[in-house]
């Protein structure tokens, strides 16, 4: 029995070492960028993948882009609390697209990574705090998202059959056939709009962001990001109405969802701008805000 326990213990230690080796690997290509934020700014963009093409172009306008792919309102709430703790904020531009209250966001989010921005006060209990901030963060074997990241890397990079035919990369959105664009847009639509009602969790998280902003005199401005014509057509009137909450709360919304309907060359896919699109959009977004403020 002694030998059995000794070997089991030794094996667990080795497992822990492997775990940390994997953590360092994952930290390098998955976590590190997420934890980068410039606290010298007092205006921030909080959005999901729609905000990421804007890169650092907004810094010309003294705005820091704090967006990350798959960020949910829960993640944005954590970031907002972090900013309130660490710096001085005056204005937040936040995504209020049709899909942001989707129940899909309950599973597709960054809660594993945004735990970095949390403190004990952000959780109801010590257990939740330790579990989210330390156990799931450092123990690769307990974090499903880390596994998924590695799995996706292997399946999409190593076993992507589309590359086997000699095609090295994705075909640009504007060069896809109309049928293919519609198919991809439909897939995207089904990912977010498969359920009827909005997510209560996301709605509550958005309401928390609104009340937190009010409490700290932070101006909150909703942004609806540009869509391609194919996706715009499929989306139609479908929405989980995050913008309605903003309107109800008398908050400003800058609606750009149809601004690039005839500019497919600015899109990476059906509803994400490419880098050039991001650069152009930043000018439109922040210029229009200035004129909006002047008009007001």
């Amino acid at each position: 029995m002694r030998a059995f326990l000794k070997n089991t213990f030794l094996f667990l230690i080795i497992l822990l070492v492997v775990n940390f080796a994997l953590f360092l690997l994952i930290r390098g290509f998955y976590i590190k960028d997420y934890e980068e934020v410039d606290l010298d700014f007092d205006e921030f963009i909080l959005a999901d993948s729609h905000g990421t093409p804007l890169g650092d172009f907004a810094e010309e306008f003294e705005v820091h882009n704090f967006s990350a792919q798959s960020d949910s309102y829960l993640d944005m709430g954590r970031k907002l609390r972090y900013l309130l703790r660490k710096g001085k904020i005056e204005r937040i531009y936040i995504s209020v697209d049709d899909h942001t209250l989707s129940p899909t966001r309950e599973n597709q989010n960054n809660l594993d990574r945004s735990a970095y921005y949390t403190e004990r006060d952000d959780f109801d209990s010590w257990f939740e705090f330790v579990n989210e901030k330390y156990l799931k963060y450092y123990l690769v074997f307990l974090n499903d998202r880390y596994s998924l990241v590695i799995k996706n890397f292997i399946t999409e990079e190593l076993f992507d059959y589309r590359r086997w035919g000699g095609s090295k990369g994705r075909i640009a959105w504007e060069n896809l056939t109309e049928e293919e664009r519609r198919r991809q847009a439909q897939d995207r639509f089904e990912n977010y709009f498969e359920q009827d009602g909005a997510s209560e969790k996301m709605r509550d998280a958005l309401m928390n962001i609104i009340s937190l902003s009010r409490e700290h005199n932070v101006e909150l401005i909703g942004v609806r990001f540009p869509l391609s014509r194919s996706y715009y057509g499929i989306l139609g009137e479908e929405s989980y109405h995050a913008d309605s909450i903003f309107m109800k709360e008398s908050l400003r919304i800058l609606d750009f969802d149809n601004v690039f309907l005839d500019r497919d060359s600015l899109f990476r896919d059906m509803d994400h701008l490419d880098r050039e699109g991001g650069e152009i959009f930043v000018d439109i977004l922040l210029d229009s805000l200035e004129s909006f403020i002047e008009y007001k």
């Binding site: 094996f11 080795i14 492997v18 599973n107 074997f141 499903d144 596994s147 590695i150 799995k151």
Partner: peptide
């Protein structure tokens, strides 16, 4: 032996449906 066990554990963690 232990290397194989670790490999299987990794395979379960990465490819297994743990969600």
């Amino acid at each position: 032996r232990w290397g194989m066990y670790l490999l299987i554990i990794l395979a379960i963690d990465i490819f297994g449906n743990t969600s």
